[in-house]
Amino acid sequence: MELTVTGTNAITSPFLHAWDWRVALYLFLGGMAAGLAVMSSILRLKNAGKSAEGESASFWGPLWVPIILSFGMLFIFWDLDRKLNVYWLYLTFKPFSPMSWGSWGLLLFFPVCALNALVTMPGEYRHWLRFDVLRTLVDRLQPHKRLLAILNFVFGIFVGLYTGVLLSAFVARPFWHSALLPLLCLVSALTAGAAFMAIIAKRKAVKLFFTKVNVSIVIAELIVMVLFSIGLATSQGGAVMPSFSFILEYLLYGMAIALVAKLLLVTDERSDALPDRAVLLMQVSAAMVLAGGLMFRISLVYAGQLSHLV
């Protein structure tokens, strides 16, 4: 068919490009913060908190959550074309708008993860708390430490899912419009969180733990990705497949897994006695998982905009 259109807008034609790398970064950082919240809570809740002992990541993990989240929110704010009206997000709640859920969700998540970070703060950093109010607040919250960790976990799952729900809600964009997308985004968030934990963990055993966790989730993610791709191929979203694929992510994840596999071969049971080479392998594989996660978000954002309901 020969098609000539007069009167198209550059932002929707020949394909949508409403969103760019800023939104991808927002989703990536938001996901990573969420995953980190989940993973750091796992560390704190596991073995009734024993695993967290002596591990600085049990504080730095929670602390990075609000920081990374802030950066993520900065990017989405940057993407808004009419920033001065941003307060309207909080004068409204729109039950069918994932973005509304997201803005409210993040608004609630932020204090939770911030408080969670505060209460996990070891004594040696107490002097960072400049104000008395903060100190009393932290003291008052000490008994609710576990609850906060649980809340942090729950919000982490919520936000992780949200990064996918936001996109999957668009019937107009078949590539995104998949029930698997929230799950895919959640596992991607979890891998990023686990990778981040693996990187910042001091104790080799903890590092190894998150590396192992990571491998299982990455494998899960790869499976979901395959399912998602199959779903795409049988839906209209498949139309963008020639110009887009998850190949790069498969590659990065595959290499990360290969590294870890190699690592596991050289590992004996006493994980704290791992050789430095193994630590390096873990760091590198975690970094690759992070890179893969970033690539995933970028491809997701751009590819979805290429697809169109017909």
Partner: peptide, 24 residues
């Protein structure tokens, strides 16, 4: 064109960084 738009917006944002100017 995609790149163009983004660049234009980027310039605009960095240019009108001050909230005051935007309000005005």
């Amino acid at each position: 064109m995609a790149i163009d738009l983004t660049r234009r917006k980027f310039l605009k944002i960095s240019g009108a960084a001050t909230v005051g100017a935007t309000v005005a």
